[in-house]
Simulated assay, not measured.
Amino acid sequence: MIDVNGIQLHIAEQGEGPLVLLLHGFPESWHSWRHQFGPLAEAGFRVVAPDQRGYGGSDHPEDVADYSILHLVGDVVGLIRALGEERAFVVGHDWGAPVAWHTALLRPDVVRGVAGLSVPPPFRGGQPPLRTMRERFGGRFYWNYFEEPGVAEAEFTADTRTTLRKLLYSASGDAPGAGRPEQALVDPERGWLTDAADPEVLPAWLTEEDLDRLTESFAPGFTGALNWYRNLDRNWELTAPWQGAVVSPPALYVYGDRDLVPAFPGTPELIDKLPELMPNLRRKPLVLPGCGHWTQLERPDEVNEALLGFLTELRD
């Protein structure tokens, strides 16, 4: 447990050397990086993965406003300092990717290199994202389903283990129809999980023990994790001073070709322009065939190879 910015963060740690922070997404925990710890530590890195605020063994502040992007970046900067370091490599997946990208955007002085899995770098749009999606999809986009306090919580906590199994499987490259260019829309009356794919047998990258462990980490509920989404418009307002700014530290972006996130409205066009928009992108975005949303779980060997190449080059 580490004291950071007035809260406590639970971390897992392995190895010695330059610090690498691994930031998980939704609905996950530090354990989503279980395949990265050994290879990165053996290569001479100090690997630390926190349960981010609102998740697992870390504190779950009650105020929705305590989950803004400035709080989340502040946690990363504070964690680097609390671990006795001045700078770190920052790697994020899903929601962890925007935290990693924004840390590099807002505090490039503490970021030796930044890597994002699934979610590309943030380039601020012309209007608040929750409003944008509400207007585009009539309030049925999953971000908007998460907006109303208590609604998604009630659905997800009715059977936490089933919720996590369905969410993980339905967004993976193994789910029926994975990779089709459809958006994650939710009928508010039916909820998210009613039509979500549910495997008869877990895919090879997710064991029953893994699912048990993740279920245990959500014993406090989903409110903290969902509060991240409830700050999307607030984040848009807070980041106005960085309109037009670029991510300047060395960068790597990896995603699966069956992941729906890179197919979000406007995202394919953004990905095509990344080599122009990011002055220190070290290679073209790496696309993993057959991979869904859970990049480092579904394709650990390819992700480890990409991360090791990126980190070792910058260290040496």
Rank of each mutant, 00 (worst) to 15 (best):
D195T: 13
W228M: 02
P203A: 13
E237D: 14
D233H: 02
G221D: 06
D195C: 00
L214G: 09
E200R: 11
S217A: 15
L238K: 07
T223C: 04
F218A: 09
L226H: 09
W205V: 09
T239Y: 06
R234A: 05
A197F: 02
N231G: 03
F218N: 07
A196L: 12
F222A: 02
A219D: 13
F222K: 01
L232F: 09
A196P: 11
L202F: 11
P203M: 14
T223L: 05
D212L: 05
W228A: 02
F218W: 10
D233P: 02
R230K: 09
Y229H: 09
N231T: 09
D210F: 10
W228L: 12
D212G: 09
E208M: 00
D195Y: 08
D195P: 02
L193C: 04
A219S: 14
W228N: 01
G221L: 05
L193V: 04
L206Y: 10
N235S: 08
E237A: 13
W228Y: 15
W236L: 01
T207M: 03
L206W: 11
F222H: 02
T223P: 03
S217Q: 15
E216N: 04
D233V: 00
P199F: 11
N227R: 12
N227E: 00
N227W: 00
A219E: 15
W205S: 09
R213V: 12
F218T: 07
V201F: 08
L193E: 05
L202I: 08
A219K: 11
G224C: 05
N227I: 01
N231S: 05
G224Y: 03
E216P: 04
L226R: 08
D212I: 00
W205Y: 08
L238P: 00
T223A: 14
E216Q: 13
W236S: 05
A204L: 11
D212F: 10
G221P: 08
E208L: 05
N235R: 10
W228D: 04
R230F: 04
W205F: 10
L214I: 10
W192P: 00
E208F: 04
